[in-house]
Amino acid sequence: MQLSIDARLRRTPACTVIIPTYNRRALLQRTLDQLARQRLPGDTFEVLVVDDGSSDGTEETVADFRDRLDVRYFWQPDEGFRAGAARNLGLARARAPVTLFLDCGVLAHSNCIRAHLASHDAAAAQGLPAAVVGYVLCFDDENQTSREIVAELRDADIDRYVEMAHGRFSRADVREHIYALCHDDLSLLDAPWVVFWTCNVSVRTRDLLDQGGFDEAFRTWGAEDVELGYRLHKAGIGLRLSRQALAVHHPHPFDADAKRAGALANYRYFARKHGISLTKALTGDMLADHYRRRQADQAKAIPKSVR
């Protein structure tokens, strides 16, 4: 038995999945269960769970999956919100050339990791380093605490649920309006970093390390992932959308007012750090350009006699 474990550790996986968590044992169990259902050989990817000081038995939950996943558990003391530090802890121990970040409570479709890797392969074939943005259903302010979605997901087959949810506007990725704006080509966006969310995103591990990972000065929810996306963009790492890298965000309790306040403070820090305006940090010129194009289209549609 020891020989087989050592042999597995000598093999380099294609993808490292990093999941930060804090006192969400039940959601973590669902997340790990979906990873165990991926349509890939078990040695294709590893899973690193980084515990930000939980006290709910999270380590035992991870241990329960060691016969189904190549999974390792890491812990850091509870010193407040430190999701960036947790992800960096995992990143420093990643063995694969591609790192996929998933949030605890994000339930990956069985083809999710395969789709991320395929997108990276396509980018590499073109000589274009990329960060791959996966599609996340059911995530927006309205759905974050939705009892209806919680009921739908209870004992649900996630692959079948994805097929059902795809046709419902209320279940779409909250970034869908941005994807529609650029026809799914994120390179057309002035500020592609605004969709770089670590709920479901992958990047070459070397590129993440070259950028120093996450800025650990972010100590409340929001913007620490977008700020890293900004640095990757400035370093020439293009963002790609993969609609096949699907996942479902499971609702959970949260303090909306506190999160918004913390995120705004973080975006202000982001803007100061890079010497840009708050608007630039939030949207770039994307929305302004869209507004100008819309005005121009409307002007063309107005008969000259009434202009």
Rank of each mutant, 00 (worst) to 15 (best):
H166E: 15
R171V: 11
R82P: 03
S187Q: 11
W221D: 01
R66Y: 03
E152A: 08
R24P: 01
L278P: 00
A86E: 01
Q298I: 13
N266L: 02
P303G: 09
E79N: 15
E176A: 09
R30W: 09
R292V: 08
A83E: 10
G57E: 04
D51F: 01
R8A: 12
I302L: 11
S55E: 14
D51L: 00
L27D: 12
Y135H: 12
G236H: 10
A26R: 13
F74G: 01
V150N: 12
P13R: 08
V174Q: 10
A36H: 05
R147S: 10
G167W: 08
N23G: 00
G284Y: 05
G229S: 00
M1F: 07
A281I: 06
P13A: 05
A36I: 10
V174S: 06
S170L: 07
T220D: 09
I5L: 11
L241E: 02
S4L: 15
L208F: 00
V49N: 02
L40D: 01
D67A: 07
Q298T: 14
W197G: 01
P251A: 08
L40W: 07
E59Y: 00
H183Y: 07
R171K: 13
A124M: 09
V174P: 00
A151P: 00
I113N: 05
T283V: 03
A296Y: 01
C182R: 09
K234H: 12
G222L: 06
L40A: 04
P251E: 10
